[in-house]
Design a protein around this nucleic acid. Sequence first.
DNA 1: GTGGTCTAGACCACC
DNA 2: GTGGTCTAGACCACG
Lengths: 123, 123, 123, 123
Amino acid sequence: MIKIDSRSSKPLYEQIVDNIKENVIKGYLKSGDEMPSVRKMAISLSVTPNTVSKAYQELERQKIIETIRGKGTYVADTSNIKVDDEKTEQIQKELKKQIIELKCMGLTKQEIIDIFTELCNSL
Amino acid sequence: MIKIDSRSSKPLYEQIVDNIKENVIKGYLKSGDEMPSVRKMAISLSVTPNTVSKAYQELERQKIIETIRGKGTYVADTSNIKVDDEKTEQIQKELKKQIIELKCMGLTKQEIIDIFTELCNSL
Amino acid sequence: MIKIDSRSSKPLYEQIVDNIKENVIKGYLKSGDEMPSVRKMAISLSVTPNTVSKAYQELERQKIIETIRGKGTYVADTSNIKVDDEKTEQIQKELKKQIIELKCMGLTKQEIIDIFTELCNSL
Amino acid sequence: MIKIDSRSSKPLYEQIVDNIKENVIKGYLKSGDEMPSVRKMAISLSVTPNTVSKAYQELERQKIIETIRGKGTYVADTSNIKVDDEKTEQIQKELKKQIIELKCMGLTKQEIIDIFTELCNSL
DNA sequence: GTGGTCTAGACCACC
DNA sequence: GTGGTCTAGACCACG
């Protein structure tokens, strides 16, 4: 369910975080589901346990998953979510950058919005 | 016209590149305009000339600016632009990631598209 | 395997780039082979790591090598190559210049083609 | 008869040198022909006289032209030419580099030789 | 004056 | 360990 690309310029742990979040919002992972252990996921992804551990820590910080000591790691209750204004602003900056990149390649505003809408619908 | 944040995790030279691209697509910089010299911009941004030079070289690779040896650096003819499929694909991946982030914070599809459309209009 | 000449007018990083490309097309470096680390090559060539890094970054831009963060640098899959028309045109201009130089020294067309064919065969 | 490109990465004076040599080997300029004065050529090319002067000095060093004090500058006797082994070797190095570049883009030996032969015939 | 290259030495994130 | 970024300061060719 998770695919990572060791050639990508993105850190492996970040790719894992992104992948799991995608699975959550797509509904493949639901509140209360048990996550694979750090070791098992490390083996299945062919990375070091350290890398998976870092990804889990990041996900826990973002309240996407919860670790219950001695039991395991579980997908958190999605009702915990809250809009983080600081983060929203950060994401808007990045979106703005992508728009600029696309405009620099000659795409029109409408073409860009079309691409984005299609992406939204595919998720 | 250019503002950089030395505390940001983004490389300084990349911030410069992004800033200049933004000025170009907003029309503040037009084809044929002379860019500030590497040294002058370095002083005005409080960075080393090397950092500005790296930004200029990256912009030249992307055909946003042109350098004329011994004379200076100029905004390139924007009609040279061509769509880079590989880059477009990569941008789409990043856009997808941002959408996932926003959805994880509880925003609906329509809210996300509204934010994006507004961003597009502001550029 | 790599030799550079600090007295040459050609930039050191460019000499490194050219040398590595030669090793690749001669088959001394094959897809997947690990490149020496930036620091190690810097020591063996008696240049700063920055210079080697610049060469590696240029090679990566040209898809000759790939870097995996935190691990190392590897020779890329050569099947990725694609003909760059703009670059081809520029190379033809340079070849034309060399032909003119040789003709100015009195060599005939046939002598020039013979020299060139021999060079092609030696690679 | 001479065209230079101020955007090119090649020095202007070098472009002038190359252009004049091309005219010589194509027969447009013959032994004994008078060259335009530095000032006139500077005006017609829209460069500073210094640049043209540097080009003429280089051409004189290569025995392509001769300056007769108080009279003017003339195309030299082509029988003066002699094969410069050192220069020939230098040119071969550059040719080798171009071949490597083309091979890196996936061209075969035969395709490269065909391109070269065609170039030779066009001069 | 311009940009291009190089060195020496530093700090950082990633694995 | 790896590569990526940045600074400070130097030298060079070009116009």
